[in-house]
Design a protein around this nucleic acid. Structure first.
Lengths: 108, 108
DNA sequence: TTGTCTTATTGCAATATTACGATAATGATT
DNA sequence: AATCATTATCGTAATATTGCAATAAGACAA
């Protein structure tokens, strides 16, 4: 098959899965880390920072944008990418229950 | 291709990506949520809780186990699955820099 | 042992992902 | 207008993922 049965799950579960899936590739992790350490969002330089071809990086940026984890603003003839705080807050918030659960003693 | 170039990235980036990828499916999100709300880890009941065939759920459990996010202990003729606190702490820790970065004003 | 219950594995078919070269599209510069 | 710089898209080949029925493998009970 290869087709995820999203209908069987809640919108929240699908959204959390979409966030996680977007982060589920080392290149996209590297992009997020890069954007997390930039005071200002240097943009075209993402391509230089990621050891993959420009077309491939552009594809990864598109996936992060589709998931909502980053946003891009046109700035002259280049594009300024940066993190989307709202989505990241939601991502964090959805992970909280599990993060707090692991503080308790586990059964096995 | 379809083959992720892990060699180009750090071990940490690959590990974070592996965690995220494991969580990147609504069924696996549902499994984690289920284990996060259980006082004791009821185990075979995961299959009943997830609206997919037993074989498919078993496959998802295997992926979560491979990523280290859950662990399974044999208990009689059934298996007790629960969250792996160590890995979840590492997962959380690796996301922290981004979570804190979004608290600052963004550029675009 | 035989049967039952529980979980894993195998073997598919359908679809998705990854990567890159080539090319297009857009804005800036000359 | 012509060119350059930057980013997106297309086309492609290779590989991965998803889902399930069927089957296997394990522990326990009678």
């Amino acid at each position: 098959m290869g087709l995820t049965k999203t209908d069987n799950f809640t919108a929240e579960q699908n959204e959390l899965a979409a966030f996680a899936k977007a982060l589920g590739h080392p290149a996209r992790v590297a992009i997020i880390e890069y954007l997390s350490t930039q005071a200002s969002c240097v943009c075209g330089s993402i391509v230089d920072a990621i050891p993959l071809a420009q077309a491939t990086v552009s594809q990864h940026l598109k996936e992060l944008k589709n998931a909502g984890l980053i946003q891009g603003n046109i700035e002259g003839n280049s594009i300024c990418y940066c993190l989307n705080p709202e989505k990241w807050k939601k991502f964090k918030q959805m992970l909280e229950p599990t993060f707090t659960h692991i503080e308790q003693p586990v059964c096995c």
